[in-house]
Write a protein that binds this DNA or RNA. Structure first.
Length: 231
DNA sequence: CCATTAATTATCG
DNA sequence: CGATAATTAATGG
């Protein structure tokens, strides 16, 4: 993990979230004057469900999960955020509270940008506002399909979904470093970690997907897609 | 179709 | 070495 964020203004930063690329130099400087960057170790809470939203978070290094918490029940892993995405929350337009928690899956680095500045930029820069809302809508639609998949699919199908999500959306490769624990996969696909172990073993026996050390590899993409589809 | 339980093994600090 | 994570098999809703 390198240190590109430090010592750079937002205008110069190579790890600013894609949303910010619509901003002018002046607007980026305005952000720079109202942002704090922090590091988190694996498993640390970046934002807590229920607490007030005072900043948006831009992930510059590492991975983080968005989890829906329910007292007495396992967390539900809603989605995963990778660099250089902005972690927005629906609550910022509603009640100013987080409706999920953000927890780092690896060591991460993040910039916190004051919400007031973001609101101010909405007025100044319509393209920024448009893209911002686009990204919120995009996640909403993604969650609809997650909802559907969790309800309709069996375990193998749900786990195949998880693997394909990681491969297609997060790592953009059929081979990737498995940063998620079995329990994270379980949270993503609404099953126990024991079941995750068992299904992963089946996938391995059928030569569809396997994890060696921490390297995950999809061996038979077609079959995996098939299992995800009719699971 | 899948969770729970419990026992065992692997891995990490 | 102790703690935590992962695996595996058995059982039962």
């Amino acid at each position: 993990m390198n240190d590109l964020v430090d010592g750079f203004t937002c205008a110069e930063c190579l790890k600013k979230c894609s949303l910010f690329k619509t901003l002018s130099k002046e607007q980026l400087d305005e952000i720079y004057n109202h942002r704090y960057d922090t590091t988190f170790r694996e498993g640390e809470v970046i934002a807590k469900q229920g607490s007030p939203i005072s900043n948006v978070v831009s992930l510059s290094d590492g991975l983080a999960k968005l989890v829906l918490e329910t007292p007495g029940k396992p967390d539900i892993l809603l989605s995963i955020v990778k660099p250089t995405n902005l972690i927005t929350s629906p609550g910022m337009f509603l009640d100013n509270r987080y409706h999920f928690s953000v927890i780092s899956l690896t060591d991460t680095k993040a910039c916190f940008i004051n919400m007031t500045i973001i609101r101010q930029l909405f007025g100044e820069n319509k393209e920024f506002q448009k893209r911002f809302h686009y990204s919120v809508g995009e996640r909403s639609v993604m969650l609809f399909s997650r909802f559907r998949n969790l309800i309709h699919k069996n375990m193998a199908g749900r786990l195949a979904d998880a693997i394909l999500f990681l491969s297609n959306e997060i790592y953009e490769s059929p081979e990737f470093n498995m940063d998620l624990r079995r329990s994270d996969l379980a949270e993503y696909s609404n099953m126990t970690k024991e079941s995750v172990s068992r299904i992963l073993k089946e996938f391995k026996e059928q030569k569809l997907f396997h994890i060696e050390n921490d390297t995950a590899r999809i061996l038979d993409m077609n079959r995996l897609v098939q299992i995800a589809r009719n699971g």
